[in-house]
Design a protein around this nucleic acid. Structure first.
Lengths: 335, 335
DNA sequence: TTGTAAGCGTTATCAG
DNA sequence: CTGATAACGCTTACAA
């Protein structure tokens, strides 16, 4: 453990001015080879590290991006962070992270902290994009890109998945296979992503002239257990259904287990599909069908968009909706 | 979007000196109520935010912690980050994150970046703690705490799980249930955590006078598929085994599926246990047995330890090994 | 209670 | 090619 040394001391030891040392460190300006060597020797010897804080203050650039997420738990967000990280790494930015548990005050607080830390841009993921968020972002003089959520065209950029469309398309795919009697297991009513998927599901049915008993469209809490329980209740109401769609893999797996525990065959009697594609889909013996989309790409693109905004002078506004793939596997059958 | 304003302009607008503005913002020194009000009004009106960079430069404190991890993927590390985050949040520190994919050069690079960014401490998680890491950490004049790995008592603090002991104890638990014929599915040879667990397993057998065909102790790559494949090979070698232990849940699930696909009964013919306890353990219809330990607590304690080191003047050295619980569920049976 | 001025460790401009 | 020196925006003695 040795104390940090500063540019002044290096300059003194090398018998030059601090300006010259700075030039050597940044390869800027011109320095005679012999003095460069001398200075480099001193740097080596002292283990000198420039104080980036001071540099950033002088340059008014921090090379810092702030990421605010509502949760770290689950497969998606960590992958998204990974994508963000990759993009930032390639562009020599560093990543400041805050996790808010979806609490509005905490979100606001971190916007302010990040702003005062002079981050050059903010990536923001929340469970539900509210008016308060819009106001906040529009007041802040630094670029913001919203992840995993639409911002309703208020001039705030976002990158997200098209929940509505893939849910609808997946539903129609099952209809195409001959299914007519559906049940749906959604997430909590507060989840925008879940609501969008549910809407896609309903419109998919409606446009194909299929009616849905609203009792068969239910809300769980994303866990395996709640999928099991909701399925239990669905079976109590109506045994004639031939397809169950769950908003995520966990609940789909729960439903699958429940169905099998009732000695009902999957997929012969009931097909199961999750609007998701996590490691869980691969865990069950009977491979679960689902919709695949890349969180890592989302993170990467979101970060890319943000960097573009930082570099550009005018405020640009872009909305990106990422593609998906529907994978029908063993858990789904033709009727 | 409005431009950032600085303390000087606020002072001018309020007709006071910058020192007074600074006092108001930091509640330091004494300010007359009337001038405080006046200044607060100007702050409100201008939306002034202090430039934390400048403050940090003056104070020589950044309130920044760096976290270097080898990966974001999987259930453990995100939970650990969550724990770190909680502790830092409570103490008004911010979190800078870097993900290295376990590449040594990247690890070194981020130690340097973090150091030049003047983080006050570093949390470090890597797949294998090497001599290079030790050298690096001992040269750096800021506190470091290693996570998820021992540092071999070199005066470098760490907090980790006791892989060896829980693997051994889990093995002995199965022996206590009457099992004598074991197979083991480990991770890649490069994973220290996997090696430690494997050692615990072997010693558990050895101390109980049970011999192990080394062909039955295998290496996968942590995925469900590789668990399946290794189990396939185990069954080809020896059908008489009564218990399989896998180093993680994923491979345990793979093994479980493989066994069932061979129409061998779990747990009646073969018991299965994973040295892990992720969401996967709850996904299979037949609840998987495993060892539970809290990544979130590990993160929290690691961060706590680091903060303690930052506050203390002398370099303290502490090693923390966290507790675990062995959960025997449906996948394990008495012989 | 308030203001002046000296840092904090850099970068960058401008002479020399 | 190199050295003074003025920023950068803030904190904090020290004076008044």
């Amino acid at each position: 453990m040795k104390k940090d040394i500063n540019i002044k001391e290096v300059a003194k030891k090398a018998g030059v001015s601090i300006a010259t040392v700075s030039r050597v460190f940044n390869n800027s300006g011109t320095v005679k080879e012999s003095t460069r060597k001398k200075i480099e020797a001193v740097i080596e010897e002292t283990g000198y590290y420039p104080n980036v804080l001071a540099r950033e203050l002088a340059e008014k650039k921090t090379h810092l991006i702030g990421l605010i997420v509502h949760s770290m738990i689950g497969e998606g967000i960590p992958r998204m962070i990974n994508g963000v990280n990759e993009m930032l790494e390639d562009n020599d930015y560093n990543l400041l992270i805050a996790c808010t548990n979806g609490i509005l005050e905490s979100e606001i607080k971190h916007f302010e902290i990040f702003r005062s830390k002079r981050v050059e841009g903010i990536l923001f993921a929340t469970r539900e994009f509210k008016e308060e968020h819009r106001d906040l972002i529009q007041k802040i003089p630094i670029p913001v890109v919203v992840l995993l959520q639409r911002t309703d065209k208020e001039g705030i950029s976002f990158v997200t998945f098209d929940n509505y469309t893939f849910a609808k398309e997946a539903t129609e795919k099952l209809i195409g296979l001959g299914h007519r009697n559906f049940a749906f297991i959604g997430g909590p009513a507060t989840s925008v992503n879940s609501r969008e998927r549910q809407l896609g599901f309903r419109d998919g049915l409606k446009e194909n002239g299929i009616e849905l008993d609203t009792n068969l469209s239910r809300n769980g809490d994303f866990t395996i257990e709640s999928g099991y329980q909701q399925m239990e209740e669905i079976l109590a109401i109506e045994k004639e259904i031939t397809a169950v769609i769950a908003v995520n893999d966990g609940m789909a797996i729960g439903a699958l287990n429940c169905i099998q525990d009732h000695d009902i065959a999957v997929p012969n009697d009931i097909s199961v599909l999750g609007l998701d594609d996590t490691v869980l889909a691969k865990a069950s013996r009977l491979k679960l069908s689902g919709v695949h989309y890349s969180y890592s790409k989302l993170g990467k693109q979101g970060a890319g968009l943000l960097l573009k905004q930082i570099e550009s002078d005018e405020a640009l506004f872009e909305e990106v909706v990422l593609p998906y793939e529907i994978h029908l596997r063993e858990s789904v059958n033709k009727r």
